[in-house]
Design a protein around this nucleic acid. Structure first.
Length: 865
RNA sequence: GCGAGCGUGGCGGAAUUGGUAGACGCGCUAGACUUAGGAUCUAGUGGGUAACCCCCGUGAGGGUUCGAGUCCCUCCGCUCGCACCA
């Protein structure tokens, strides 16, 4: 027996990767119906991690499968290269991000190539290049013209030690900054913002168009947009000209209002405070300023507040109620002030209990009484009592009438507030898109004329990057000294840069023509390619990125650049990649690789020999439980890496990485290759069978299993997107081939049938293990590349069965199985069922009360006695 | 607290419309081949049981149904997101 070629993924894969490169196999053709597959583009850290591998493999399966369906697939890749991580790396290493980034990109591009990802690299884009970010600037100017960009003051984290603004992620617990300075506080600074709230209603309404998005993402977006319908009510502050305006969704409870609360940051807070309360109020405000907003308002945080001394008049009742400040009210939601109804709001109830404020019930459950004193707030709708002319009304009716009354009498009106806030996008950073604005003493903030774009970032060498002391560009006169575009006098350039969410808000459109120097993208191309058909990425982007992205698309629509409401038809969110991790309570995480294979009693901390805690957590450097994709590819090949990540869990679920499980998929690849290697030489030119007729039993069996598998895989991939079960079906097919001894030369299956099986197997395998698929396809005489072949059609004759196994139950319990002709009549099925020995035993001496027949599935006898 | 989701063998996971629970893989057991094997091949593998009969079994309890992992109710547990949203 001659030496068989053995499965050597390394050389095999590299060979096919070159073939794809040379033929530009994944470029669009313009000759078929367009189909756009996109994955969220990565930050070019320099190394692919398992999360990327999963994300991009899932996308690649879709792209390759859709191409085999005869569609003209656009599948591009690019780099989300601006932003904080690169800037920090530049500070640390003193290497220009302009130099570092392309190196990182080159390395990651090579890793992607080695994974066999089929991208059209001629469309590659990088957001750090002026040819990209000049269009951020251009969009900024268009948004400005439409009133969608404005200047505002905002509360930010401020570190006095660094003398600069900090991102939330740069602030650690207890107001300590990432560099270790204490005393991080908040301060108001001017910033640029996009008026996303102008599109709130549309962003909410169009969620209905997103039927092919995961339900939980749509729900998260709906909650984040957070439309709430209620009433604004003005409470005059006694003895002053001030009026506190509150927003409430429960105006029906207002007769139970016993105090009013302002946010500590409320503009009016000090103005209304009486002289004797000034000191304590000031102290309270100061304390709150140093507190983290999230922590302060977290559930379970004690509710604290201070009395201002002021009283306000409830305009409905004329009653005077005290005005307080409290930690749980936020300045930037609603009006920054709330009316407190402790009887009917749990927060208010807790606060009132803590400060011994009165609790006055005014809503009663229908036909019932409330047991007093209340142990908790009654927050449901009900019937109004002690509510003047509104008494006796049901809550929903009362809300309408009371809002109406407020409007008539001039102290309020119905109102809508949104959870969603405008998108502040200025950053005091270097590595971002410069905001194209020039400040002129005479003309104010003047937009840079479009003809002068791009405003290019100055060289890294000219900037002093320290991460401290505000915007780096503000220390660079060569950058900011300029002339006013209107009057030509000396003026100052904006030195802040844009949030990187701007880059990712429209990159999908730039892929249509990434090197277009005359426009952001060609609207005509957008008409044929957009919206994106499938977008694959992590669920962590459920609200921020995906909302900004939807917003931008709608603005582009209003600018006439795109022709539909939503950027993405179908969203796939893939789960995390988790792995076992080991942690010592005192010394932290230990290297997982050293302990994974040890017995539990041998898993001891290397430092203190305490037993290590075991947990399944997301792979990360800090937990030392990561698997390096490149090591995996080196050892088993890209096809195995891809197969495992697809097999271990369906795309949307978390995946637990089990190194032993990888071996199973490697074995699968080896076994497939073996069947191929045994037969390729002698079947390469064999004529294919054209029908199921006249085949030997073994041949018929092979064809039957093959075409059933094809039917199954087509459904799992194309309809259900359950790649794990598609691979399982191929494993079953392989097992069936082994049963017919196809892994041995001496098998009795005819060459034509073997060749058909190998060709079809290669096609089914092509989206998942594309290199091995090409090898087999070419080896048994397939035409061209398998990735360009058309997905095969199952031979329904081969799939059809002559008989089926029926399950036979007695009283719902399985008692036997009988073989009957397919589509057998009820009578035939029942007769066959009763003839089964074991079934007959269970029916003996019993009365059959009912006979249930489910065609081609089961028979159930209901018996008594 | 609010919102979303999930509980199935030793493990990852199947079960598509209410119709044979545990496909497929890992692990494990036995055998073959072998100087050897963490290679390969063959067979087995939810629990109870001598058993192919039978009984039990999808987080717990109840219900609907000829039939429930799947539908309904109550409860328990876990995970994720969050800005106490007035």
């Amino acid at each position: 027996m001659a030496e068989l070629p053995i499965y050597e993924p390394k050389s095999l894969e590299s060979r096919w990767q070159h073939a794809w490169n040379e033929t530009r196999a994944f470029a669009t053709t313009g000759k078929a119906q367009p189909f756009y597959v996109l994955e969220m583009f990565p930050y070019p850290s320099g190394d692919l991690h398992m999360g990327h591998v999963r994300n991009y493999t899932i996308g690649d399966v879709f792209a390759r499968y859709m191409r085999m369906q005869g569609l003209d697939v656009l599948h591009p890749m690019g780099w989300d290269a601006l932003g904080l991580p690169a800037e920090n790396q530049a500070i640390r290493e003193k290497i220009a991000p302009q130099v570092r980034t392309p190196k990182n990109i080159a390395q990651m591009r090579e890793q992607m190539r080695r994974l066999g990802l089929g991208y059209d690299w001629s469309r590659e884009l990088g957001t750090y290049l002026p040819e990209y970010y000049r269009w951020n600037q251009w969009f900024f100017l268009q948004f400005l013209k439409r009133g969608l960009v404005y200047r505002r003051e905002t509360q930010v984290n401020w570190c006095p030690g660094c003398n600069t603004v900090l991102a939330n992620e740069q602030v650690r617990d207890n107001n300590v900054c990432w560099r270790g300075h204490t005393g991080v506080t908040t301060r108001k600074v001017p910033e640029w913002a996009f008026r996303i709230t102008a599109y709130a209603e549309q962003l909410l309404k169009d969620l209905d168009q997103l039927g092919a998005w995961p339900e939980r993402i749509v729900t998260q977006q709906r909650n984040w947009i957070g439309k709430s319908v209620g009433t604004r009510v003005q409470f005059p502050v006694l003895g002053t000209n001030h009026t506190v305006e509150v927003f409430t969704t429960r105006v029906d409870t207002i007769y139970g209002c016993t105090y009013v609360v302002l946010a500590p940051e409320h503009a009016m807070a000090l103005a209304i405070t009486t002289p004797e309360q000034q000191a304590s109020v000031r102290a309270f405000i100061e304390t709150m300023r140093g507190q983290d907003k999230i922590e302060r308002t977290a559930e379970g945080a004690p509710k604290v507040g201070v009395f201002t001394g002021a009283k306000a008049k409830n305009p409905y009742t004329g009653e005077e109620v005290p005005v307080w400040l409290a930690n749980f009210v936020l300045a930037d939601y609603g009006t920054g002030a709330v009316m407190s109804v402790p009887a009917h709001d749990q927060r208010d109830f807790e606060f009132a209990t803590a400060y011994q404020l009165p609790i006055k019930p005014v809503i009663y459950p229908l036909g019932k009484d409330l047991s007093l004193p209340l142990k908790a707030a009654f927050t449901d709708d009900g019937e109004l009592k002690n509510s003047g002319v509104f008494s006796g009304l049901a809550s929903p009716v009362a809300r309408e009438k009371m809002a109406h009354a407020a409007k008539e009498k001039g102290f309020g009106d119905a109102a809508v507030t949104w959870h969603l806030r405008d998108w502040g996008f200025s950053r005091q950073r270097y590595w971002g898109t410069p905001i194209p604005i020039i400040y002129c003493e005479e003309h104010g903030a003047v937009p840079v004329p479009e003809s002068q774009l791009p405003v290019v970032l100055p060289d890294f060498e000219s900037v002093e990057l320290t991460g401290q002391g505000g915007a780096p560009l503000a220390k660079l006169p060569a950058f900011y000294e300029t002339n006013c575009p209107i009057c030509g006098k000396q003026a100052r350039r904006e030195t802040e840069t844009m949030d990187t969410f701007v880059d990712s808000a429209w990159y999908y459109a730039r892929f249509l023509g990434p090197h277009d120097t005359t426009q952001a993208f060609d609207p005509a191309l957008a008409k044929s390619w957009l919206p994106v058909d499938i977008y694959v990425g992590g669920p962590e982007h459920a609200v921020m990125h995906l909302l900004y992205f939807r917003f931008w698309h709608k603005v582009m629509r209003d600018l006439g650049l795109v022709h539909n409401d939503e950027p993405v038809k179908r969203l796939i969110t893939q789960g995390m990649v988790n792995a076992i991790a080991f942690r010592c309570p005192t010394h932290g995480y230990a290297k997982a690789a050293q302990f994974r294979d040890k017995k539990p009693e041998e898993r001891l901390c290397p430092e203190c020999h305490a037993p290590l805690e075991v947990a399944i957590v997301k792979m990360s450097k800090s937990k030392y439980n990561g698997i390096d994709p490149m090591e995996l590819i080196e050892k088993h090949g890209a096809d195995t890496a891809r197969l495992y990540t697809l097999f271990a869990a369906p795309p949307e679920k978390d995946l637990e990485w089990n190194p032993e499980g990888v071996d199973g998929l490697f074995r699968f690849a080896v076994r497939v290759h073996r069947v191929f290697a045994v037969h390729q030489a002698r079947v390469r030119e064999a004529p294919l069978p054209t029908s199921q007729h006249g085949l030997s039993p073994a041949d018929a069996e092979i064809r039957s299993v093959l075409h059933r598998t094809l039917l199954k895989v087509t459904d799992e991939v194309g309809v259900r997107n359950h790649f794990n079960t598609a691979i399982a079906a191929m494993m079953e097919l392989l097992n069936a081939l082994y049963e017919q001894r196809l892994h041995e030369e001496s098998c009795s299956v005819s060459p034509g049938v073997i060749r058909e099986a190998l060709l079809t197997f290669a096609q089914m395998l092509a989206p998942f293990a594309p290199h091995l698929a090409e090898e087999i396809w070419a080896g048994v005489g397939g035409q061209g590349l398998v990735c360009h072949s058309l997905w095969p059609k199952p031979d329904l004759d081969a799939v059809a069965r002559k008989s089926v196994m029926l399950a036979v139950q007695v009283n719902g319990k399985l008692r036997g199985q009988v073989e009957v002709p397919i589509d057998a009549s009820q009578a035939t099925a029942l007769a066959a069922a009763k003839a089964d020995e074991n079934v007959a035993r269970h029916l003996e001496g019993k009365t059959i009360k009912k006979e249930v027949v489910v065609p081609n599935r089961l028979v159930n006898f209901v018996v008594a006695g």
